[in-house]
């Protein structure tokens, strides 16, 4: 592959070493370096880019738009008239779907919210702690433990779930949210541990070396340097945990048996059944409803993705 570049490569030797230029200084150098016609051309290019992005977005979104359109059609017309614009508008799917199950749909949204919030909190705290140890601390068998951690996500859920069920059943945890939340508090989601390890390793080590020289302990380095500087990684973890838990079907199906405890994915599944009538209209309507929280979390959460070192400066 590519040669590992020396750390200084990004800034060629010819550049005089000195204090980092401020943003305004950098910005000031731009206009002079552009040809006069550049501005108009840049505007055209910007428009073109938007057009391309929108066109691409429409292709990406077609199935979703189709689902949205179908959620406004009477169930029997969904497959007979599969076009994007409903010929007959029916908002009844939303009210029907909301009340179709034993509890109003808000009940399932709330259950999902509890599971999701517990999982997000658990993953943020426990995975970042484990990741700090793997990324920055020296201890015996570090590589071995790391390998074991990765191994734990290499077995498909389908063979893990039965022993897990037996385990949680013997703890009387079936039918509670504990089997879904407690593992997250215990950093069992190796994906996020590894993710944060990679981000932590991307933070210049000089920072915590310097902090150590100033007498900071690991707790403070972790809290004051690593966490603030890896906001994008934390945001990624939070967003993904949210979305994946929100959509996770299999483990919630297996561990929650009382309808009172059902979460959104299980509730959605009860609209369709291969052997009898399926309420496609209400299903699509409630699928749209259940996408809203996820979309909002993403829309607002992603601004934290953007707040990395790049905007906060290096210190």
């Amino acid at each position: 592959m590519t040669d590992a570049p020396a750390r200084t490569e990004p800034r060629p030797e010819s550049h005089p070493a000195g204090p980092r230029p401020t943003l305004s200084e950098v910005a000031a150098t731009y206009p002079e370096r552009r040809p006069p016609r550049g501005r108009a051309w840049a505007a055209v290019r910007r428009v073109l880019r938007h057009v391309a992005l929108i066109a691409f977005g429409l292709v990406m979104l077609y199935p979703l738009l189709w689902m949205l359109a179908s959620s406004f059609k009477p169930t029997e017309l969904i497959f007979r008239e599969p076009g994007l614009i409903p010929t007959e508008w029916d908002f009844g799917n939303y009210t029907d779907g909301w009340n179709a199950l034993l509890d109003p749909f808000s009940h399932y949204l709330l259950n999902s919210a509890i599971v999701v919030l517990g999982s997000v909190l658990g993953n943020l705290v426990s995975c970042s702690m484990a990741a700090y140890a793997f990324a920055r601390l020296k201890f015996r068998g570090r590589n071995l433990w790391f390998a074991i951690m990765l191994m734990s996500i290499m077995l498909p859920i389908h063979v893990i779930i039965v022993p897990q069920y037996i385990l949680f059943s013997s703890l009387s945890w079936i039918n509670t949210f504990l089997p879904l939340i407690v593992p997250k508090l215990l950093a069992t989601d190796a994906f996020f541990v590894f993710l944060m390890v990679q981000f932590f390793r991307g933070i210049p080590k000089d920072l915590d070396e310097a902090a150590r020289l100033d007498g900071c302990g690991h707790g403070r380095i972790f809290l004051r340097i690593m966490l603030p500087l890896s906001l994008p990684a934390l945001a990624t973890t939070a967003i993904f945990t949210f979305i994946w838990t929100w959509n996770d079907f299999f483990s919630q199906l297996i561990f929650l048996t009382k309808p009172d405890m059902y979460t959104v994915p299980i509730a959605l599944r009860t609209f369709v059944d291969a052997t009898s009538n399926s309420s496609w209209g209400p299903l699509f309507a409630m699928s749209i409803v259940s996408l809203i929280p996820v979309f909002l979390v993403f829309l607002f959460g992603q601004k934290y993705l953007v707040k990395g070192i790049a905007t906060t400066g290096i210190k």
């Binding site: 299999f250 199906l253 009860t270 059944d273």
Partner: peptide, 23 residues
């Protein structure tokens, strides 16, 4: 009576797992 329901596909996975767990 405690209800325990799901769709056709999920039903058999759940029943087999619960049986394996003695529930």
């Amino acid at each position: 009576v405690v209800p325990d329901y799901t769709d056709w596909d999920g039903y058999w996975d759940k029943l087999a797992t619960a049986t394996a767990g003695g529930d």
